[in-house]
Design a protein around this nucleic acid. Sequence first.
DNA 1: ATAACGAATGATAATCACTATCGATACAAT
DNA 2: ATTGTATCGATAGTGATTATCATTCGTTAT
Lengths: 128, 128
Amino acid sequence: MQKLTAQRQAILDMINRFDKHWDADEIAYALKEEGISIGIATVYRGLAALADQGLIESIQLADKKRYERADKSHHDHLVCTGCGSIEEFCEPQIESLQDKVAEERGFKIEGHQLLLFGLCKTCKAEES
Amino acid sequence: MQKLTAQRQAILDMINRFDKHWDADEIAYALKEEGISIGIATVYRGLAALADQGLIESIQLADKKRYERADKSHHDHLVCTGCGSIEEFCEPQIESLQDKVAEERGFKIEGHQLLLFGLCKTCKAEES
DNA sequence: ATAACGAATGATAATCACTATCGATACAAT
DNA sequence: ATTGTATCGATAGTGATTATCATTCGTTAT
Ligand SMILES: [Mn+2]
Ligand SMILES: [Mn+2]
Ligand SMILES: [Zn+2]
Ligand SMILES: [Zn+2]
């Protein structure tokens, strides 16, 4: 029985309003800017609850978790080590190969995360 | 220039002696068991230095980094959410699809990490 | 309407992996 | 021997996240 409280609705609305990957602090700050002040612990709990219900998606980066809207089809991420930008890509062949690998080993997949690290087009051009 | 000191050699030897994925504390504890006591900060620095030189490999899990020997061919990981065990797999087709995706976007890949989460064969069987 | 119960909130303390600091050491080059 | 550079180890600090706990909110039972 997870409740969709006013605070959680505000967090969800904010995430759905933009197409980006938020961390908890960014959400709290953006809400405060709009006059909606939510305790940071509540933001963390709200994000966890929303992700739990599938209302938002999350990716675990090395240092922190980032959240995004869930109304996009499944995708994985390219993370630029130069500027920190995050691009998205969808490759169904990779997804089915993952399923094949898991099945071969009797492993029941609950989720996966594929991160490609490197330099985005812009940062690559700036390299010398 | 990074030195391969006695402490770092001991860490490297330990990692090369077993085929597992170690965190920093496990390394420090295993060494102490053998009478080799190394400061925890030195263990962290040693692991970073060894990984930097390609003498060991690392994977970033949600909570912590884990290290393994580097004398195996590249592979990715299946992480059991039941017992925490880590299996390995190698799927060249996935690797080449990653390269294709990156190339299409002008993204220069420096590395990647693919984690499959779920239940290993044993834990799946125990699920009622 | 009121009492009662479960869940959520928010301020804050605590946790935990990891990094920074800094005086002491090791070791190689001059 | 002296200098210089990298490392060591004890420990303080950092930053994201979670735990605690008194208070508040919503819903259901009376
Ligand atoms: Mn995304
Ligand atoms: Mn491995
Ligand atoms: Zn970039
Ligand atoms: Zn398992």
